[in-house]
Design a protein around this nucleic acid. Sequence first.
DNA 1: TCCCTATTGCAAATGACTTGCATAAGCATA
DNA 2: TATGCTTATGCAAGTCATTTGCAATAGGGA
Lengths: 144, 144
Amino acid sequence: MAPARDSSSLLREAGLRATAARVALLNALCATHKPLKAAELRRSAGRGMDLVTVYRAMDALEKAGLAKRIGVDRTSASWEFAHRAHHHHLVCRGCGELEDVGECAVEGLEKRVLGKSKRFASVSDHSLEFFGTCRDCASAARAA
Amino acid sequence: MAPARDSSSLLREAGLRATAARVALLNALCATHKPLKAAELRRSAGRGMDLVTVYRAMDALEKAGLAKRIGVDRTSASWEFAHRAHHHHLVCRGCGELEDVGECAVEGLEKRVLGKSKRFASVSDHSLEFFGTCRDCASAARAA
DNA sequence: TCCCTATTGCAAATGACTTGCATAAGCATA
DNA sequence: TATGCTTATGCAAGTCATTTGCAATAGGGA
Ligand SMILES: [Mn+2]
Ligand SMILES: [Mn+2]
Ligand SMILES: [Zn+2]
Ligand SMILES: [Zn+2]
């Protein structure tokens, strides 16, 4: 999708060195619609690199606001490209299938939540995930 | 708070053996308002037990619906007593300070989210956390 | 092109959680 | 209350994602 030149610019505009590893990872991230785990990112990057490099690069991309860490899986992290509107996810408890949920009815709530709190000075963001069962898992369960 | 007798009954009503470890853990969980990590639970239980026992017991309590796992900390799980109304949390990015958020404006959304999805058969629940800065961390930051 | 500094690879360390197996309780029953 | 089957626990070892230390390498401004 996004040509390498774009990723390089994005990186430099974000104040990061446009290293080969970061460019490849950012391209991989843009090329797909779904969140990718560290190992998947390395594979998708199509360029040999150490897993440690993936972790360090994703840390950098995350801090720079280019990638967003998704905590949907309890045992491992995944990231998605951050230049997309704020959204949430619908996740299948059976197979991990994941779908974007565009709607966010929570945004206005942050202020109200802060207003009701005595101990907090500010609320900056939130995470919201919906869990359920996808059609495939539902029919598999029915068949069993 | 809850006397040992209560925890034993709760456990047995949930179809679990009321072992000493589980009773102590459930008591510890009821005695506090905040989610506890595995190591904290063991300490609070006031009774020597292996960490493995904590994990296995919390698994059991969770499946039985007596405890709820909280995923607020990326590096470790914590649990809170489950016999409380559905609620969410406000978490301090600085120190981990945590506060209950009673309000849930999301409940009605589950149906709408399911309605908009083509690949999902059902939505069973959701997780919602608010992140921000507590007053202490805010003034500490100001002082620095 | 040169130099300084940020980044990478490799190897080793962490740390939360799991698993296997033998022993010690629960608790239903007699 | 004693018995016996079944499940829970302790201990030791294993797993696995993620982190850290350090020397070698490669961005990119001058
Ligand atoms: Mn998404
Ligand atoms: Mn709570
Ligand atoms: Zn939102
Ligand atoms: Zn809710």
